[in-house]
Amino acid sequence: MSEIVFYTNPMSRGRIARWMLEETGAPYRAEIVPFGPPMKTAVYCAINPMGKVPSIVHRQKIVTECAAICAYLADAFPEAELAPATTDRADYYRWMFFAAGPLEAAVSNRALGFVVPEDRRRMIGYGSFDDVMATLEKAVSRTAYIAGERFTAADVYVGSHIGWGLQFGSIEKRPAFVDYLGRVSERPAYRRAVELDDAAMAAMQKSA
């Protein structure tokens, strides 16, 4: 009953959840869900009505959305020390959900070729792409990790976004981003997660 069932695809945001699972050290079973019709079946949509991955099922409870999965797992497995004390979570929540909201929206819209007209910036949460990049740069430059001097689940989430952005060119290659990613990607759990997802991706391609 305590095993986590992890629904994912190695070519998706499921890589964020995989990293977080590896950080907790908790037992889990990965179920690879191919894109297309398998992800839209009635069986899987009963777990995630969006027909998207990742999702986790733990103790008969379902959690979707990567930021929520990271926050949930940090609380469900406090022995892993992936969340600050409840009295010291301001930066932890602030930057995790900044990445889930303004950062992801700004990066996605830019990749799609959508630029917010200057006179409409107040209508959208992130304002402008340049504002988001400047804010993120300051956030990762203040302390060793995004919420202070200790690694937390917020670093899994923010670090994943920065890693993908630098890899695919959707986030500017600023020294502060490169340095921050270097710190968080040194973690053994990150390396294990990458190896597991790369192996799963190779297996999918071989069976295709």
Rank of each mutant, 00 (worst) to 15 (best):
2 S>K: 11
2 S>A: 15
4 I>Y: 03
8 T>P: 02
10 P>G: 09
11 M>V: 14
11 M>Y: 00
14 G>S: 00
15 R>A: 04
15 R>G: 06
16 I>G: 00
16 I>S: 07
18 R>P: 04
18 R>T: 03
20 M>Y: 11
24 T>G: 09
24 T>E: 11
25 G>F: 01
26 A>W: 04
27 P>H: 06
28 Y>D: 07
29 R>A: 06
32 I>F: 10
33 V>Y: 00
34 P>V: 07
34 P>Y: 02
38 P>I: 06
45 C>W: 01
45 C>I: 01
46 A>Q: 12
47 I>A: 01
49 P>R: 09
51 G>K: 09
55 S>G: 14
55 S>N: 11
56 I>V: 06
57 V>H: 01
58 H>Q: 08
64 T>M: 15
65 E>A: 01
69 I>F: 03
73 L>C: 14
74 A>V: 01
79 E>D: 15
81 E>W: 02
87 T>P: 00
89 R>K: 13
90 A>C: 11
90 A>F: 14
94 R>N: 12
94 R>A: 13
94 R>F: 10
95 W>M: 04
97 F>I: 07
104 E>R: 10
104 E>K: 08
106 A>Y: 03
109 N>C: 12
110 R>F: 02
111 A>G: 13
111 A>L: 06
115 V>T: 15
115 V>N: 10
117 P>G: 04
117 P>E: 12
118 E>K: 13
119 D>F: 02
121 R>H: 04
124 I>M: 14
124 I>C: 07
125 G>P: 06
129 F>Y: 15
129 F>S: 00
130 D>R: 09
136 L>R: 05
139 A>M: 09
141 S>C: 07
145 Y>D: 06
146 I>H: 01
147 A>E: 03
150 R>K: 12
151 F>G: 02
151 F>A: 05
152 T>M: 04
155 D>A: 05
156 V>R: 09
158 V>Y: 04
161 H>G: 11
162 I>A: 08
163 G>S: 15
164 W>Y: 11
164 W>I: 07
166 L>A: 05
166 L>S: 09
168 F>K: 00
169 G>C: 07
172 E>P: 08
172 E>L: 11
174 R>F: 05
175 P>F: 06
175 P>D: 11
175 P>Y: 00
176 A>C: 05
181 L>N: 10
182 G>T: 08
185 S>D: 08
187 R>F: 00
192 R>Y: 03
196 L>I: 14
200 A>Y: 07
201 M>K: 15
201 M>Y: 13
202 A>D: 10
208 A>S: 14
